[in-house]
């Protein structure tokens, strides 16, 4: 099993910033993946599977966040996470629906 460690920075374009539903979507993706995920904002570093932690990110629209993943599916997971920060409803709902 190949261990990968990848990171990516991106700008939050969701007009509402990282909100409750974003956090839930991130959590849903993180739970499905086999990698360790960290989401880092200017003020906080959150575990991808911890909803309360994610809620504390305080990342408004226009701020930069960094995603880190370590594990066998690290690259795929980042690809799945990145669109969540655009606030696209279909992406959010898709992330939530896949159980």
């Amino acid at each position: 099993m190949s261990e990968q460690k990848v990171s990516r920075s991106l700008v939050v374009t969701d007009p509402s910033g990282v909100h409750v539903r974003t956090a839930t979507a991130i959590q849903a993706v993180a739970r499905r993946s086999r990698s360790e995920i960290q989401v880092i904002s200017a003020c906080h570093k959150a575990k991808g599977t911890d909803i309360w932690d994610l809620l504390a990110l305080a990342a408004p629209c226009g701020s930069t966040i960094t995603l880190e993943a370590a594990g066998p599916d690290a690259g795929e997971v980042l690809d799945a996470l990145a669109p969540i920060f655009t606030g696209d409803e279909t992406v959010l709902l898709a992330a939530l629906r896949k159980k």
Partner: peptide
């Protein structure tokens, strides 16, 4: 579904 999602968030919390 997008409105139901807020309750999904509450549920997770």
């Amino acid at each position: 579904a997008q409105y139901g999602a807020i309750f999904e968030a509450h549920l997770q919390m």
